[in-house]
Design a protein around this nucleic acid. Structure first.
Lengths: 242, 242
DNA sequence: CCAAAAGTGTTGACTTTACACCCATGC
DNA sequence: GCATGGGTGTAAAGTCAACACTTTTGG
């Protein structure tokens, strides 16, 4: 910690610090984002990521979790996966004042039907594709969130965060296919998932579930593992090998 | 952006925002970190990561680059790789006041012999292993930096950031071995690197260089590629396959 | 000639892919 | 029965790790 000449440690400029959230879920086979409609300028009428100021006694993570609870109306937000993305600090991000935003991605199982927004602004789940321009630099934050989540699916067990407590391998595969926008071979997907020790574990009660018609599928739960060796790489973007 | 009841957008608590740097280099086959010795409490006499306040007209990235130039004494800092790590915002990180720190990792080729520190505090390159406890939560930041850099070597072309403009494959391999703390098979390493299109490109002037005695090695430059397909995975931590 | 470091070749083990096929259920 | 989704098997292609071997330099 050094100070530039003419800079006094205790005479720093005040910054506002906010925590913004890219809350993602998969609904009807499509990636959806939780957005709030802005009621006032700037960007009145535009959609924006939910978020808010970090309180004096909170960390950015705590603030993000608080906002998540308020915005989704969920009571038990403690178990949800919150991933810190990065911090956006360009001086002109917000025309009103100097705001530094710590962005997070949150992954939810199925749609916890909108939210019980604590304030007047309406909040809605909107499909990730077919979004108009968002307020501030939120397009970029959201794109970063998508990119990060897509990458983490490759080498972590994050995918189960999109699934309910008990799920089928078909549902898990849909998570990958939806986030990556590709199709995967079912037999191979199944083998890779089951070959990774703590990724998923079968629900012992031989329980099964029907996804409409077709053979009932076995149910699985999230396992202990967090990392994925070997990784589950997305199918070849351009040419993969030399 | 929503506000909690009783919260006025313009009456936020002031936060100090700093940018701290984990400046890494490889010297004599060992990972080294640039640290500054603190002259005042708290943590007087402890080593800390270089860093400083973000000025009102700067982004955190800009502030980090400015600090990097001040601390290393390098004139051309514009080409160096700066990687935003994450933001540390726990309320009690700094006993004096509320400080939110955006941490960065910087990778330098060989040792630009210490620094011309702009202030009195001495700055030094210290070996990553055999570091005592650092000031504040800088141990954790540094560990996160090491972890992140190690991971990025797997799937990005970041390793060349540790190398001078022209380098041999042996030097590049040493970067991997030093950061990962493992040994790699030279023939296989060479093949993987050369099999990735834009990773490195040969210096056409048939230039060569001797690293002491032994056959002179061909020289390479950094290529255009940034990502690494297929990835260069670290050798099996626990058991890799099922 | 020897040691040291660069660079090439090869082989067997393993992984991955692509696809064929059977199973259980709703209509 | 037949469409639909779950689950198993397999063989060819590809990848990778391990190690033997050649080349070029300094002493």
């Amino acid at each position: 910690m050094t100070t530039s000449p003419g800079y006094d440690k205790y005479a720093f400029e005040p910054f506002a610090v906010t925590a913004d959230l890219a809350v993602l879920t998969i609904r009807a086979g499509a990636l959806h984002v939780l957005l709030v409609e802005r009621g006032q300028e700037p960007y009145a009428g535009h959609w924006a990521l939910p978020g808010g100021f970090v309180a004096p006694d909170e960390s950015a993570e705590t603030a993000a979790r608080r906002e998540l609870a308020e915005e989704t109306g969920l009571s038990d937000v403690s178990g949800l996966h919150l991933e810190q993305l990065r911090t956006y600090s360009e001086p002109d991000r917000d025309p009103r004042m100097r705001v530094v935003t710590v962005a997070f991605a949150a992954l939810l199982p199925d749609p916890p039907e909108p939210h019980a927004g604590s304030d007047a602004a309406q909040a809605r789940w909107l499909p990730y594709d077919s979004l108009g321009p968002l307020a501030f630099d939120h397009d970029r934050i959201l794109a970063d969130a998508h990119e990060r989540v897509g990458a983490k699916l490759e080498y972590s067990c994050l995918a189960t965060a999109f699934c309910p407590p008990e799920f089928t391998l078909g549902e898990l595969q849909q998570v990958y296919e939806t986030v990556w926008g590709t199709e995967l071979d079912r037999p191979n997907f199944r083998r890779k998932v089951l070959a990774t020790p703590g990724f998923v574990e079968p629900v012992p009660g031989g329980a099964k579930l029907t996804g409409g018609r077709g053979k009932p599928a076995a149910l699985y739960r999230t396992g202990d593992a967090t990392a994925l060796y070997p990784p589950l790489l997305r199918p070849t973007r351009e040419g993969r090998s030399a």
